[in-house]
């Protein structure tokens, strides 16, 4: 029987720190990104070739996309590192979960309920700790840029406003909406990726050959779209946070 686990599996301990399979894949994703970034930018030239060309296409496309949302080059430069990192990290974490062996290669463990395979790898985004961590970073970044751009009082007025009872009530709703972003961000990404993994696992179990292929393509697209949605929503919230409430 197939073994579907909602929670990431504990693989080993680093001193007393528990390392899970999703954390391991996150580290692999980080390593891939850092190594590729290093290799593609170690000999930067004005006329690009090879890996520099490829990385420039990605960076330029992302930068132009961000500028199309912010309509401001200065803001694009401020937000770009955060948004680009979210996009690349989430995208790679999503796609790493589609590599054959992830979720199926593991350690055989004999427990009280019999022997089972503990997967060695699990997509980073299929762990709520990963998605929630990104959502928390996104949330605090939004608050940080809001306060930096507008000042504590102007930005705080969005949440606490005693001018009228309606504005006070709107402030409460805004606060709830702001905190809800963490939940919506994390559960959207986790739900989509985890559901995709489950779908692939079930399809592969039922019909191991050819049939899973369309679903793989679908999951490749889902991975891309989810990375795009996460980064773009963060960007839109950032943009909204740095504009005065009366202005929009």
């Amino acid at each position: 029987m197939i073994n579907i686990s909602f929670l990431p599996e504990h693989i080993f301990n680093l001193n007393s720190f528990p390392v899970t399979n999703s954390l391991l894949v996150s580290w692999i994703a980080m390593a891939i990104l850092i190594i590729f970034a290093y290799l593609s930018t170690r000999k930067m030239e004005l006329v690009p070739k090879g890996a520099q060309n490829f990385i420039e296409i990605i960076i330029e496309s992302l930068y132009n996309l961000i500028t199309s949302v912010t309509s401001n080059d200065k803001e694009s430069r401020r937000f770009f590192p955060l948004i680009a990192t979210i996009f690349l990290f989430v995208l790679l974490s999503n796609w790493l979960g589609l590599i054959p062996g992830v979720g199926s290669v593991g350690i055989k463990e004999i427990g009280t309920d019999g022997a089972k395979i503990v997967p060695l790898f699990r997509a980073g985004s299929a762990d709520l700790n990963f998605t929630m961590a990104l959502a928390i970073i996104s949330f605090f970044s939004i608050q940080y840029f809001g306060i930096i751009s507008l000042g504590v009082f102007k930005y705080g007025k969005k949440f606490i406003n005693f001018k009228t009872p309606i504005l006070f009530f709107v402030g409460i709703l805004e606060t709830i909406g702001e905190v809800a972003k963490i939940i919506s961000f994390s559960f959207r990404l986790f739900g989509n990726i985890f559901a995709g993994e489950v779908l692939l696992l079930v399809i592969s179990f039922l019909a191991p050959f050819i049939v899973p292929l369309p679903f793989y393509f679908l999951e490749v697209i889902v991975g891309l779209i989810q990375a795009f949605i996460f980064s773009m929503l963060t960007l839109v919230f950032l943009k909204m946070a740095i504009v005065l409430h009366e202005e929009h």
Partner: peptide, 11 residues
Amino acid sequence: GIDWRLLAAQV
């Protein structure tokens, strides 16, 4: 499955 240590590690 939220573990504060794992969450902090991911951050």
